[in-house]
Simulated assay, not measured.
Amino acid sequence: MTLKKKLAMGVATGALALSMIGGGTYAYFNDVETSTNQFAAGTLDLTLNPETIINVDNIKPGDWMNRTFKLENTGSLDISKIFLTTSYTESVAGFGEHIVVDFLKNEDKGSIAGPSNVIVSKTLAELASMTPDAVKNLSPTFFGWQGGEASGIKAGTKDNMYVKFRFNENNLDQNAYQGASLELKWMFDAQQTAGQSR
């Protein structure tokens, strides 16, 4: 056999040996564990009861209307804030400046130290530029103690609200508002609490 053939045969034999090593089967110990995990998001669900807070007709200057309603957290997550947004449509321009919310109280947030007034004597026109938090405890703190419930609404609980509307009597000519109508929309925007380590 010539040197070239011997070299070629040697290279071929080496390649065959390498392919057998690479493609060979080896026995070894093995253990596999599988982790099955789950993420489930909670729900933020605010219920207004009743949905229509006021529906009144034939009002005149000087009339007032007291109403109650509930803000209920029917979701699985706590609510930290509920922003109140006011909008309205009026049949006669300026009528919203004569309808006053004397107060909107959150009776669950009040205390001996003072009530929790979400709104104090604002016309609907003034309220249209505000977004107060309807579930904030505004009572003062004394030595670390604050009367009433903490701000927000915990899951499965509710806050009782008390509101007084008034057709303002300004002792001026208000004849322009005879037969006027106004549709008020209050939007209650519930916000979640801050994220936390879980």
Rank of each mutant, 00 (worst) to 15 (best):
V92C: 04
A93I: 13
A93Y: 09
G94Q: 03
F95G: 08
F95D: 07
F95N: 12
G96D: 03
G96C: 06
E97C: 05
E97I: 00
E97D: 15
E97K: 15
H98R: 15
H98K: 15
I99P: 07
V100S: 12
V100W: 10
V100K: 14
V101P: 07
V101F: 01
D102P: 02
L104F: 01
K105I: 10
E107Y: 09
E107N: 14
E107Q: 15
E107L: 15
D108V: 02
D108I: 00
D108R: 11
D108K: 14
D108M: 09
K109Y: 05
K109W: 07
K109S: 02
G110W: 09
G110M: 07
G110A: 09
S111R: 05
A113H: 05
A113M: 13
G114R: 03
P115M: 12
P115D: 13
S116P: 04
S116C: 11
N117Y: 13
V118G: 04
I119V: 13
I119G: 08
S121A: 07
S121R: 05
T123K: 12
T123L: 04
L124T: 02
A125C: 04
E126G: 02
L127N: 09
A128L: 04
A128M: 09
S129D: 15
S129W: 06
M130W: 03
T131G: 11
T131H: 12
P132S: 02
D133P: 07
D133C: 06
V135A: 06
K136P: 00
K136R: 06
N137P: 08
N137H: 04
L138Q: 04
L138K: 10
L138R: 03
S139W: 03
P140Q: 11
F142C: 01
F142G: 00
F143G: 04
G144M: 12
G144H: 08
W145G: 02
W145D: 00
W145A: 03
Q146R: 14
Q146N: 09
Q146L: 08
G148M: 10
G148E: 06
E149W: 09
E149M: 11
E149I: 11
E149R: 11
A150P: 12
A150E: 14
A150T: 15
A150R: 07
S151R: 05
I153N: 01
I153H: 01
A155M: 08
A155Y: 11
G156I: 09
T157D: 14
T157Y: 12
D159M: 03
D159L: 03
N160M: 04
N160A: 08
M161P: 09
V163E: 04
K164Q: 15
K164W: 03
F165L: 05
R166C: 01
R166H: 07
R166N: 06
N168W: 03
N168I: 00
N168G: 04
E169I: 00
E169S: 12
E169L: 06
E169Y: 00
N171P: 01
L172E: 11
D173G: 06
D173H: 01
Q174F: 03
Q174R: 10
N175Q: 13
N175C: 10
Y177W: 10
Y177A: 06
Q178H: 04
Q178K: 12
Q178G: 11
G179F: 07
G179E: 13
G179T: 10
A180K: 08
S181E: 12
S181H: 05
L182K: 04
L182Y: 09
E183N: 14
E183D: 15
E183H: 13
L184W: 05
L184G: 00
W186R: 11
W186D: 00
M187I: 11
F188P: 02
D189T: 15
A190E: 00
A190I: 01
